[in-house]
Design a protein around this nucleic acid. Structure first.
Length: 421
RNA sequence: GGAGAGGUGGCCGAGUAGGUCGAAGGCAGCCGCCUGCUAAGCGGUUGUGGGGGUUAAACCUCACCCAGGGUUCGAAUCCCUGCCUCUCCGCCA
């Protein structure tokens, strides 16, 4: 969420930023409503002030047993007026709030301008895609041969876009979880294991709601949303809190399953593990001081990259352009891992700095020592990594001519073997 | 699922026959004083958000005693709804 006052004072900046994103908002309409709101607010407050004064007087008069019926009658009218104006005011407040909640974040100046994913900019590459002396297979073919993922039975149990990991496949999934969490906690991230059903407020705080309801699984009676990423519950850990400066930055890492409707992706990645309704992910989340957030984004991205390096998986880092970054994000780096089965790089992690956008929605502030007042923190997060896609990458990059798959060094103690065959 | 109790400031904890309560008191924190140092003691001070105001302050004002409604000239205090916490019974991994 952007600050209403910031919008008012920087109308052109906001307009341009949103245009770069491909959004066109009736900002002047917003300003009009907001101005009405302020005018009405002043009016109501003045009436309240008067009521407070007279009401006090009535108290005094009554105590002295003096007749106060004139004041009483007066205030009855004033109170009715306040009530009426309050209703109007609430409408205007709701309107401005609803408006603010649907305006995306302003991209950072370093974000490349572009209309869609074709204009994202490659920042760096790591590793060299292996050269195979045979035709590399897709991960689902490898998995079928090794009997470690059962897609047919998964669709019997649940439906399309679900998977049943089995034997070494299930173990690989679990090994990756543990490897990632262990690596992250060794770097100072605090491990948390949060709820994966959350309330509406939490989804609104991180920006999934109100705009992207269609992407979410929801249950009713009682109402809960299934988290599409650990970002949601972990960022909400500190919702409505005032943090101490000395405690910043805060680093968290969390494993959670993630649930996504994948509405509108019919026909895309229908086979295999790439796009599932339920997948596992280890996430990194940071709460930092505003002046540190872009440096922290680089460090967070490096921490996510480190997982890929340790696994020996070739990847590249892409800076998403203004037309492709997410709604809440001010800047995003995607990590794309090399997939021999598809002969291309595919997203495996997304690392973002949200600036104060989520913090304002979630009301997460901090207090500087010796300064009065509070400021919003900056929030960041990134996957380290999406586990399903990491399984895909390992199967495809480490496949051998005989159909077996080598296990990356760092996973062998977790897997209890150096090869799946 | 059934039966009860409760939600007040950073924390503890007063305050319910409605009025001068943003809220006693204590603790913690901050600033002074005192003291050889520390402790104790003494005095003062310390919430958040909005609107206005100022170069910036000061300052003025509105709101906030879980949340949302209601009654009333006036609500932390009364009524309703919701959320959360706790205790007992039942059920359950």
């Amino acid at each position: 969420m952007l600050d209403a006052r910031f919008i008012k004072e920087n109308i052109d900046t906001v307009k341009n930023a949103l245009k770069k994103r491909g959004y066109d908002f009736p900002l002047s309409e917003f300003l009009e409503i907001d101005e009405k709101r302020i005018t009405l607010l002043k009016e109501v407050e003045e009436l309240r002030n008067r009521r407070n004064i007279v009401t006090e007087e009535i108290g005094r008069l009554k105590k002295q047993k003096v007749d106060a019926s004139a004041q009483l009658d007066d205030m009855k009218v004033v109170s009715d007026t306040i009530k009426a104006l309050d209703e109007k005011l609430k409408d205007l407040e709701d309107e401005t709030k609803a408006f603010l909640l649907t305006i995306p974040n302003i991209p950072h100046e370093s974000v490349p301008t572009g209309k869609d994913e074709t204009e994202n900019v490659e920042i760096r590459k790591w590793g060299t895609p292996a050269v195979f002396d045979f035709e590399p297979l897709n991960h689902w073919d490898i998995a079928e041969t090794l009997d470690i993922i059962d897609f047919d039975r998964a669709s019997k149990i649940a439906g399309a876009r679900f998977s049943l990991m089995k034997g070494a496949g299930a173990r690989l999934e679990r090994s990756l979880m543990n490897f990632m969490l262990d690596t992250n906690t060794a770097k100072g991230y605090t491990e948390v294991f949060p709820p994966v059903l959350v309330n509406r407020e939490s989804m609104t705080a991180t920006g999934q709601l109100p705009k992207f309801e269609a992407d979410l699984f929801k249950i009713s009676d009682p109402e809960f949303y299934l988290v599409p990423t650990a970002e949601v519950p972990v960022t909400n850990i500190h919702r409505d809190e005032i943090l101490k400066e000395e405690n910043l930055p805060l680093y968290y890492t969390a494993y959670t399953p993630c649930f996504r409707r994948e509405a509108g992706s019919y026909g895309k990645d229908t086979r295999g593990l790439i796009r599932q309704h339920q997948f596992n992910k280890v996430e990194l989340v940071k709460f930092v001081k505003p002046e540190d957030s872009y440096n922290e984004l680089e460090k967070l991205t490096a921490d996510a990259e480190d997982i890929l390096m340790r696994l020996g998986l070739p990847y590249r880092v892409v800076s998403l352009c203004t037309g492709d970054i997410g709604f809440s994000s001010a800047k995003t780096y995607d990590l794309e891992v090399w997939l021999p089965g598809q002969n291309k790089y595919r997203e495996i992690s997304s690392c973002s700095n949200f600036g104060d956008f989520q913090a304002r929605r979630a009301n997460i502030r901090f207090k500087r020592e010796g300064k009065k007042g509070t400021e919003f923190v900056h929030t960041l997060n990134g996957s380290s990594l999406a586990i399903g896609r990491t399984v895909v990458a390992i199967l495809e990059n480490y496949q051998q001519k005989d159909g077996s798959v080598l296990i990356p060094e760092v996973l062998r103690t977790y897997m209890g073997t150096d090869r799946i065959k």
